[in-house]
Structure formats: structure tokens, C-alpha cells
Simulated scan of single mutants.
Amino acid sequence: MRKILHLHGIGSAGGGATASVLKKLFSDIEVISPDIPVRPLEAFAFISKLVAGNEFDFVVGTSLGGFYAMLIKGIPKFLINPAMNAPTDIENAIGLGEHDFLRPRQDGAISYTIDRSFIDELEILLKGYNSSSYDFSKETFGIFGRNDELLHNADIFREKFGEENMLTADFGHRLPVRVLKQVVYPFIEEKVNLL
């Protein structure tokens, strides 16, 4: 059976609305959407192990999950309002300190902390990505909300991956179900021939 990996954003959990809709749209494909560990290095190690142990056909990542998806080599990926410059994006958009999770987590945690070491870990991951000679441009697609109140990375994405690999639509940071169904799903179908 084919598989899609969904990576949620910071402060969220694997059982969110995007994962639920993906499961309905791709009903003949297994959609795996785990709770990602909070700490960036632990999160990427967790994701890397998951990728190594499965044959994913596609990855969908949202916000910070989009940043983590961007780092994965060899698998087509679709980024939704990704935190492409994660250290700066997270510090500016979310801020340092303790924050409440937006969705219930399987481990029961209700809050998480962004501190200086959290930002430093994101910096380590970004430096590794930027120093890689791997060509991500043929496997990286994305969508950006024109009204995103948190992140503004469409121009960075366009420069890295090309206009032909991206979409924009009228929404904010959170992807509405209608945009997922009417815009993202057909784009994935066309670009990746997943269906």
C-alpha cells in the first residue's frame, strides 16, 4: 500500500484537520500523521527514522512541519506555508517562552517551550540543509496563503524551487479545508501523479 507522511506545525498534533482531510481525499493510501517531538533535533531524528522505516510516496508538511519536510531527501513533498527560515520564523512568529498546544497530544502534554537552545537547534538543521549539494528543486512543491499573518516565505520558495512548483491562494496561516480539497489535492495529483 502506498503511504503519505503528514508533518504538522509547531504547537499542533498528528490528529489535526489537515491529516483528517488527507485521509479522506487519499482513501486508498495510508496517511501517517504522528505527533512530532517538540525539540527540533529530536523531531528531525524521529522523522528521519520514520522515513527510513517506511516507503513514503509523498510528504505533506505544514509550517514548521513544512520546514522538516523540506529537509527530507528523495521524496516528493508539498509544503504548506513552510517556516523556510525556521530559526527566524519561529522566534518572530511564535516567540520565546511557554506556549499551549493547539490540539491534544498523545503524550498528554499541554504546553511546550521555545527557548534559545530551541532556536539554536533549528539553526543547526537549516545550516545542514543550506550546505547540502542535493538538488531539492524537482521534488519540492508548496502553497502560500496571501494573507498569512505569521510567515512570509513565498519569495524565498520561488527563488529556491521556482514559480512552477508553487501556488498562492487567499487564506491565512492555517490552510482551510476548501483550499486543501480544491487547490492542493488537484495540484498534488497533477505534479506527482500520486493517484
Score class of each variant (00 low, 15 high):
residue 5 L to A: 07
residue 7 L to T: 00
residue 7 L to C: 02
residue 10 I to N: 06
residue 10 I to L: 15
residue 10 I to Q: 02
residue 14 G to D: 07
residue 17 A to M: 12
residue 18 T to G: 01
residue 20 S to V: 02
residue 21 V to C: 11
residue 24 K to D: 12
residue 24 K to E: 15
residue 26 F to H: 03
residue 27 S to N: 12
residue 29 I to R: 02
residue 31 V to K: 11
residue 32 I to L: 13
residue 33 S to N: 05
residue 35 D to C: 06
residue 41 L to V: 12
residue 45 A to W: 00
residue 45 A to F: 01
residue 46 F to M: 08
residue 48 S to F: 02
residue 49 K to G: 07
residue 49 K to N: 11
residue 51 V to I: 05
residue 51 V to E: 02
residue 53 G to W: 00
residue 54 N to R: 00
residue 56 F to A: 06
residue 57 D to K: 07
residue 57 D to N: 14
residue 57 D to T: 03
residue 58 F to N: 01
residue 60 V to M: 09
residue 60 V to I: 14
residue 61 G to Q: 07
residue 62 T to E: 14
residue 62 T to K: 07
residue 62 T to D: 14
residue 63 S to C: 10
residue 63 S to M: 09
residue 65 G to Q: 10
residue 67 F to W: 03
residue 68 Y to G: 05
residue 70 M to A: 10
residue 72 I to V: 15
residue 73 K to C: 02
residue 73 K to L: 08
residue 74 G to C: 07
residue 75 I to Y: 05
residue 75 I to T: 04
residue 75 I to V: 11
residue 77 K to D: 06
residue 77 K to V: 07
residue 89 D to T: 10
residue 90 I to E: 09
residue 93 A to Q: 12
residue 93 A to E: 04
residue 93 A to Y: 09
residue 96 L to D: 11
residue 97 G to K: 13
residue 99 H to G: 08
residue 99 H to M: 09
residue 101 F to Q: 11
residue 102 L to D: 04
residue 105 R to P: 10
residue 107 D to V: 05
residue 107 D to M: 10
residue 107 D to G: 10
residue 107 D to S: 08
residue 113 T to S: 10
residue 113 T to D: 02
residue 113 T to N: 07
residue 113 T to V: 14
residue 114 I to F: 06
residue 117 S to L: 15
residue 124 I to Q: 14
residue 125 L to D: 14
residue 127 K to D: 15
residue 127 K to Y: 11
residue 130 N to P: 11
residue 130 N to Q: 15
residue 131 S to E: 13
residue 135 D to N: 13
residue 136 F to V: 06
residue 137 S to H: 04
residue 137 S to E: 01
residue 137 S to N: 00
residue 150 L to G: 01
residue 150 L to I: 05
residue 150 L to F: 13
residue 150 L to E: 11
residue 152 H to P: 00
residue 152 H to L: 03
residue 153 N to W: 06
residue 154 A to S: 13
residue 154 A to C: 09
residue 158 R to F: 06
residue 159 E to L: 13
residue 162 G to D: 05
residue 162 G to K: 08
residue 170 D to L: 11
residue 172 G to H: 08
residue 176 P to M: 04
residue 177 V to A: 01
residue 181 K to F: 00
residue 182 Q to I: 00
residue 182 Q to M: 03
residue 184 V to K: 01
residue 184 V to M: 03
residue 189 E to I: 10
residue 190 E to I: 01
residue 190 E to T: 09
residue 191 K to H: 11
residue 193 N to M: 08
residue 194 L to I: 15
residue 194 L to E: 07
